[in-house]
Amino acid sequence: MKSPVFFLVWIVVAAIVFAFGLYLKNDYFFFAGYTVLQYVVLATGWNILGGYTGYVNFGSAAFFAMGAYASVVMHKVAPLPVPLLIIIGGIVSGLVGLGMGYLTLRLRGAFFAIATLALAVVLQTLIVNWDFVGGSRGAYIIRPNTLDIAGLQIPYIEYLFALMLILAVCALTVARIVERSRLGFGFATIRDDEVAAEACGVPTLRLKLMATTLSGALMGMAGAPFPYYIGYLQPSSAFGLEYAVNSIAMPMIGGTTSWVGPLIGAIVLGTLQQVATVTISSAVNLLIVGLLLTGFVIIAPNGILGLIHKFRGQSDADKVGRRVIRETP
């Protein structure tokens, strides 16, 4: 499927989901759905670096928070429509990603992961001590309850939900394009063996910077509308542990080698957490993630996608190969 077709198909799917929400006439659907979609974007963004190139980023919460705080700053300086805030959040977090890439260029494995965690702590400390955005007390974002679009009064949550739907479709399309391009091919060589990749002509450092930037930008975009969703943004909620944990767990549980994995993981885990929040308490969310992640790492290290491939009896090469060569001259 060509990318524009893919995009349109998913826009249609998104429209159906939105129409379903309207049909339910239930605000909770939009509130919960927004969170799940936010995780689709966050997990997809994380996976571009963590899944495609194999660099595990523990600092996702910081990228999410930078996107959210960019919106807070804009809200105080010059309020803009949320779609523009999403772009600004993407630029800010993309730059943070680029900076992180430069600082950690030669770090690998555990050292890289620790550095990303340190970066998140540093950024959180900066925000906590920055009074302009409310410091540790947080900032109120006053937003209307409805939005006037062409004379139609749309509930604000439906507007945010629709934006997140479109953003999710964009993120999935970007991830799929990257995955199938020469760039994605290069990312995969980095994941497998950087020294061999260099020897084959792959400019690994440049590719890594592209991955940290693109990944950071998507995670920032996921966070940009968040202050408007929650209404009151505190550092402890923007930098919440659940973002760091979920953005890693969702791709791992779904499968990290393809754009489908984070989507599956985010929908499964995200929905489960929403259900648990209502039925039990939000306190069990991280417990659920922890148990599932442990289970998957032990039983199905390649995630749900890996299980599907196994049941279909696909060989390793079919699973990993971009093109299976059939003809032999």
Binding site: R182, A196, C200, V202, A317, R322, R323
Partner: peptide, 19 residues
Amino acid sequence: RPFVTMSVADNLRVPLLYA
């Protein structure tokens, strides 16, 4: 040092696509 998640053909494709 093969690229272990890629097929043999794709291993050979890397230098073709990059170098």
